[in-house]
Design a protein around this nucleic acid. Structure first.
Lengths: 117, 117
DNA sequence: CCGTATCCCCGGGGATACTG
DNA sequence: CAGTATCCCCGGGGATACGG
């Protein structure tokens, strides 16, 4: 009667949690999009398009939809002329802020580590 | 003379840092692989293959190579019979622990948010 | 301005079999 | 056990043009 099996169960749960997260957040663009919105609080389609280097409008549109489906962002159409659309983080989306902050710091450190030698 | 331009510059740097991070960590499997190794400290090829649900040996091999190139993990061949190979996090890899912990917690919360409604 | 539609190509990545 | 090699297919995703 040892604790290994219990540990294994706990680890499986952690692995599943990670994979749940990654199902929503993985992909080349999602985190960058969220970061863009997060930095400016509210952000328009074309602004995000500029912030996220290399993304196409088709991809951005698709990713935004998925993020909305997963309740991470809220989409608001403003009846200006012509139409503008604003994206902002939901409460659930904002709960990623810590992770984003850490990832930013890590990215800087990583650049030093690899390129800076 | 206002502070907006400075802010914009800072935000661009943050965006670049995020994209640096994502260049290394994005993709369906990387974080899950790192998590597996992290949970057990040292982990063998076939163990990771089991931990990361759905990954193929080809993908795992490829991803491990990339993680090694980016100095996140260390690969050690043990001269057992037959050969076994051990992966562990480098110091730099370990610096992801906080992020992984947060992602785990977030994944659990997310599941509640979406599925648990 | 904010997307959607269409076209089209390339490579990501699975299944399987094989080697040291 | 830890990968590599080969085959092969499908869809991710870019470019471009168009619609509300």
């Amino acid at each position: 009667m040892e604790c290994k099996p219990l540990l294994k169960e706990a680890h499986k749960k952690e692995m599943r949690a990670i994979q749940d997260s990654m199902d929503v957040l993985s992909g080349k663009w999602k985190i960058a999009i969220i970061t863009s919105i997060c930095l400016y609080n509210k952000r328009r389609f074309s602004d995000i398009l500029n912030d996220v280097y290399g993304i196409s409008n088709k991809m951005l549109s698709k990713e935004l939809k998925e993020l909305e489906t997963n309740k991470l962002i809220k989409r608001t159409v403003l009846d200006t002329q012509p139409v503008t659309v604003q994206y902002e983080l939901t409460k659930h989306g904002k709960s990623l802020q810590t992770i984003i902050k850490d990832l930013t710091a890590w990215g800087i450190q990583h650049r030093k580590e690899i390129i800076g030698k």
